[in-house]
Amino acid sequence: MLPQDKSTAEMDPVERVLDMVSKVCVAVAGAGLVTLVGIFGWLVWGRYVMNDTPTWVEQLALMLVVWITFLGAAAGVWTQSHLSIDFVREMMPRPLRVPLHWLALLGMLVFGIVLAWQGWVLAESTWARRVPMLGISEGLRAVPMAICGALTAVFTLYQGVKLATGKD
């Protein structure tokens, strides 16, 4: 059963916490999306009505979209809504299907860890660089990638535990 099909009461404590984390991700990303729309409205207003183009919109928008993507992607791991091709696996006989499922989880775990690690590396190496027109650190662009990687790993671990204990 997928987390989004359950009520909070049906969840175990760990699941409840993780579900909350994924919802926070979506909420922050959602606020980012609404902000994104808003600043573009401001951009056009500034250019046509004030004849003073806000010069920070372009760079801020590029930053926001990275945060929306990675926070939303992390939540997508929790709700298992990423596009996948599972018909091949589902066609297999059970003795093959189970190891394939484990392999998929292992792959997600590994990629999540690498994503978190490399996100950290990139954030560190670009921290001193400034984003033009914004003045904030370029490293902030890589932070959501690290968060997404870490959450992917945690969510996948939980799904692994569920699979091992046969509760899924």
């Binding site: 250019r47 183009t53 760079q59």
Partner: peptide, 9 residues
């Protein structure tokens, strides 16, 4: 210079 600077891709 008195213009309206517009950063753009």
């Amino acid at each position: 210079l008195g213009g309206n600077a517009t950063p753009m891709a």
